[in-house]
Structure formats: C-alpha cells, structure tokens
Design a binder for these strands. Sequence first.
DNA 1: TTGAAAGCGCTAACAC
DNA 2: GTGTTAGCGCTTTCAA
Lengths: 358, 358
Amino acid sequence: MKNDDRTTPASPVTARNEGRRPLTLRDVSEASGVSEMTVSRVLRNRGDVSAATRERVLETAKRLGYVPNKIAGALASSRVNLVAVIIPSLSNMVFPEVINGISHVLEDTELQPVLGVTHYQPELEEKVLYEMLSWRPSGVIIAGLERSEASRAMLLNAGIPVVEIMDVDGDAVDSVVGISHWRAGREMAQAIVDGGYRRIGFLGTKMPRDHRARKRFEGFTETLSKAGLEVEDQEYYEGHSGFAKGREMTARMLERSPDLDFLYFSNDLIGAGGLLYCLEKGIDIPDRLGLAGFNAVELLDGLPRKLATMDSCRRQIGEAAAKVIAEHAGGNGGGASAGAERIVLTPKLTYGDTLRRG
Amino acid sequence: MKNDDRTTPASPVTARNEGRRPLTLRDVSEASGVSEMTVSRVLRNRGDVSAATRERVLETAKRLGYVPNKIAGALASSRVNLVAVIIPSLSNMVFPEVINGISHVLEDTELQPVLGVTHYQPELEEKVLYEMLSWRPSGVIIAGLERSEASRAMLLNAGIPVVEIMDVDGDAVDSVVGISHWRAGREMAQAIVDGGYRRIGFLGTKMPRDHRARKRFEGFTETLSKAGLEVEDQEYYEGHSGFAKGREMTARMLERSPDLDFLYFSNDLIGAGGLLYCLEKGIDIPDRLGLAGFNAVELLDGLPRKLATMDSCRRQIGEAAAKVIAEHAGGNGGGASAGAERIVLTPKLTYGDTLRRG
DNA sequence: TTGAAAGCGCTAACAC
DNA sequence: GTGTTAGCGCTTTCAA
C-alpha cells in the first residue's frame, strides 16, 4: 500500500462529536501555522516539503483527528480512486470470490472497489450503474455481457475503462475477462457422452435472467445433439440454491424419469443436494447414475463423494479484471482506456467420483 | 424508490467516448436554453418547475447522455447519501446475508451502501474506515465492538450515526444491533447439558481475531462449568471453513478423544463436515454422539441429518441496522445521531437431528 | 521550499 | 417559476 503515513488520528477526542463541523484543511493549517497548500502537500506526499514542516503538520493533523474530505479533493483534481464493481448477487458462492480477487489486486493500488448489486434485474443494473457513474469512478467492472441499451450507452460514454467479467461469449463494450460458458457446457457434455451416459436430465435455475447458465445449457445440448442425444428431462427452480432444492428437484425428476443415467446441475449446490439424495436412495453412483455440477465450490470438498464439476475461475477473473483496470486507469481522470483487452480463462473439469471417465 | 425519472440516457451516442470531457450541467443548460439552476432543479425534482421546461430539460439531458456529477453535488450540498458498511469478510456465508438485509432496507431510501472488507485485521479496519469516512458518508454500519483506539476515535468524531452490528456484548460507540454471542454460547451449552451429554469437545477457528466466536466459547464454557463440566478437548483451524476442514478436525478429535459424547462446532460449515464424517463412520447420532454448529445456514438444509444450530439473525441484523441509519441520517449532512439505539435480537435454537432434547 | 489565486461542478439562498 | 451570486474544501498552477 502506498501513502502509509496517512494521519490516522491517535485517540484525540473522547467526547462524541455532536454535530460539530468536520475539520478542514484550514483548521490544520491554522493550528500548525502552515499554509493550507503545504498541509495538503504533506498529507498527499506530493512535492517537496521540509522534514520539519512535515513533522509538524502530520502531528497536528493527527492530534486534531483530521480526516481529509475526498469529495472536495476529487472535485478539485478530477481524480477519483474508486472502481465500480457491479454484480448480480452476493447470495451464491460465486461473486464473493470474484470480489476477493478484485480486492486483493486493488490492495496494492490506490484504487478502491465500490460494490453494486443488481439482483439479476436489468433495470436495477441501469440504476446502479447510473448511480455509480455519477461518482465518476476510475473504472467499472461489471458482470455479464447482456444489458439494456441504456446501460451499454452509459458504459460506452463513461470515458473510463470498463471490464465485463465472467463471460466471453458475446460483444464487449471494452475489455472482457471470463470463461466461455458455452464451451464449458460443451465440454461437460462431451465428458458425459464419453463416459457412456446416454439418458441425460438437466436441473437448473429458470434462465431468462441468468445468461451464463443459459449459455452453458446451449453448449451442452449442442454437443449432445452432435452425439445424437438430447436432454430427456428438465427441472427448474427459483430462489436461493441449497441442498434442499437439489434434493427436491432430483427426487421429482427421478420419479418422473427413472431411466435417466445422468443429471447435469447448473451449480454445485443443487448438485450436492442431488448427490446426497441419490446416496441415500442407494443409487449406484457413478455407474447407474452420473452427476455433475458447476463452479467448483471449495466448501463442498468433503462431501461423501466428490461431485464432478467445472471450475468457473472466479477468483482469477476478479484478479485479472482488477489488473486490467489498474493498468488502464493509470492515466489521469477522464482518459479513456488504452486498448480493450480480452482475457479468456480455461475452466478445468473435475471428474470427482460422480462422473465415469470415458 | 424515489426520484424515478432520472435521466438514464436512451441510446444516444454509439461511438466510444475517447477521453472526452464528461458533460456538465452547463452543457445541458446551453443545449436546452434554460439556466443551470433550473436544470439542476429538474434533475433533482426540487422546487417548482413548469411542466414544459421540465420536459425540455429531461429530454435534453437524456439525449446528451448526461450523468450528474455527484462529487460536485455532494460538495455543494454537503449531503452524501452513502452508508459505509464495514465487515470482516465476504467468504463465509454470514456477511453476504447481512448485506442483503441492509440493501433491502436502503432500497426504499436515497441511501446507498458502500462496502469495505477488513479481513479480520484491525489495522485494515482502521485504514478502510479512514478511507470511507473521507467520503463523508451519511452513516456507518460496522461489524463488531472490538476495534483499535484510533478506529473508535474516528467513529466518535465522525459526527454521523454509527451502528455496530452482530454483537451486543460490550461497549458501543453509538447504536448497536445484534445478538449476544455470549448468551448464544450459554444457551447451547445448557441445551447440551439438558440433553444428557457430559463429555464435550469444541472445534472452531483460532479465535484471537474472531471475538464473536470467542464470546460464544466463553459463554459456553461458563455454563458447562456451572454444571460441573468442562470442555474436554479442543481443535482449531485457520483458513476458510468447509466440509473438508470439519471432517479432518472431527477425525483428529475423535481419534484423540474417542469418549466424547458431544462436539460443538463454531460454525455450521465445519459442523456439517463433522456430521458427514460421523455418519460415514456409522456413529450413532445423536445418541452416541451429539453435534451442533452455529449460524443456521440455509443452504445446508437438506443434509442427511439436520444439524443442531443457532440462528445468528444475519438478515434481520442487516435490516435493523439499515433502519437505524435511515432514521438517524434523516437530518441533513453533518448532524449527529438523534440518540443511540440498542437492538438485541434473540437467536433461536434448532435441535435438528443431532442434539437430543433434555 | 512555500504561498496566493483561481476554479473543479454543483447547490443554497436569495432576488426577480 | 426562473435566474444570479457565492461558495462547498480541496488541488492546480503559477509566483515568490
């Protein structure tokens, strides 16, 4: 981290600040007998200031408990070290990890992530984006490639680096970092076919909103159909993922279509629920029935059997996206991106104990 | 949501904004032939503006793709509708739910949450807090009651409502919303004792940093000792929680102390790992061995047996905290809190299938 | 190495 | 209902 000798106040005042006016540079200036400008320089480590003055200013600022007003600073310098991070949800395991990746990289930077959540609603995305852009951030990291025309226009016009993450199947506004969900679906289908499975069911979210799940499904069916197969049964759910959901769906599907020999789940959580259900029912896995999920959620390591899955490279995506922003935002405020980047990561297939190898 | 007819640009410009100067109020003013002030009024829905002017301004702003500069607005009005939300981690299941609660309540408000993550490091908390306060937010929601003197001083001096969340066992800077972890520990201990268990093991995080886990443990041992019992064995871990961790720890502990008849886990995730391990080993649960966790993580519903646990009221805490902020920040910028609130929620014990009733 | 002046883009307060 | 003026608290720029 740069700028480490910021003035974090020691323990100056003990009484509660009852609506007192916040301290300004001027207060520090007067208390230390140095011009505002010099105080400003000390606090930002800019320009040459004599060691003595420096000491005095730092001491005063700390004693008073001065906290700079970034609003004024940002307005004056038209430099805002904020990165807007816009994601659909915090509830599933995937985005928190992306955020961790982003934070991790930005920690070595002056940039700070600011989070917005859209709940998979394009209108809300539009609102959140507008709100965040009105703070003139140094960059935007935003999930997905599908969005309203208005949102796209805002991104295009923002004049700051934009990284669309998670998905690379489509047209990006600027840079993009992610995996091909379409390909992930294809590869899983191929592995399933190679494993000798023939009667396949799909269990997932209602997809109109979750484009990445949809693309995986499309890739999946496409590869199946090349092998002369098709998805024989499907089951969808709404609401939060969880084991219980996976169980119920699996139960319903196997009751309806007892002859299926493979279940492809749109995420590991419901997949794990399905797995637990099948184990309880004494179903022979992976021979009588194979199972696979998606995401490679780490917390699930330790299930009775390891669920076949595919890594969604969440943390790496976050890291790579943050790097792109850090590099492109290097310029001053207002500058546009140097050049759009396209970073495609390759998810790794894990066979685990629920997918027979071909 | 208020202020719904903001000017989200339609799809005005199609070319990428290559470092063009962002539009200002003045641009809209000139393009619409109305004073800046009137444009400002229209865009904020303040004061009386004739329907005709209003229309014209709105249309122009939209056509141009104008996005207001909140930095300037905030500086001029000393009103920032941001709420700093500072939490230790996103990786476990608990804080995302708190955040959802906060967002949900703030959605009906002009306030917007801004997230900071501290990774359970007091120094980082200090830094994040300083950083956020320098944006002069309307309020702060911050996890825990234990923090550095400097952080406490900053909160005290900020002159804005502060809500410390999750925990109520200790001294709050201002308002506080949470549960008593100490009491949660006591209650679980009591239930265990009442269930007839006598030889108890504890499995949890290394606690120097996780004060809430520590308080639960303290309450736990205290109640045990009143019953003439003590924790017979302990096992600690670092890093992310997950089933695998729970399994390993459980295996180690049962090998070392095969006579234990109850295992108390500091969270549901490792508890679930332990449960899976025990089931595999054919251990009779809950009679030969009882198990309990903490948090009431919803996604785990659907395990082969329902783990005994205690609700940490995460979402409610988020909601209540946001309400406190929304009410207290009602005043203008700079005003201090109306009066500190103290909201103590009561976690509910779930016996599930792993804790025998007394 | 330090200081003085100007102004970032907006809004409060007051005039008209 | 609309416009004008004067800042908000900083940083940029230039002068000393």
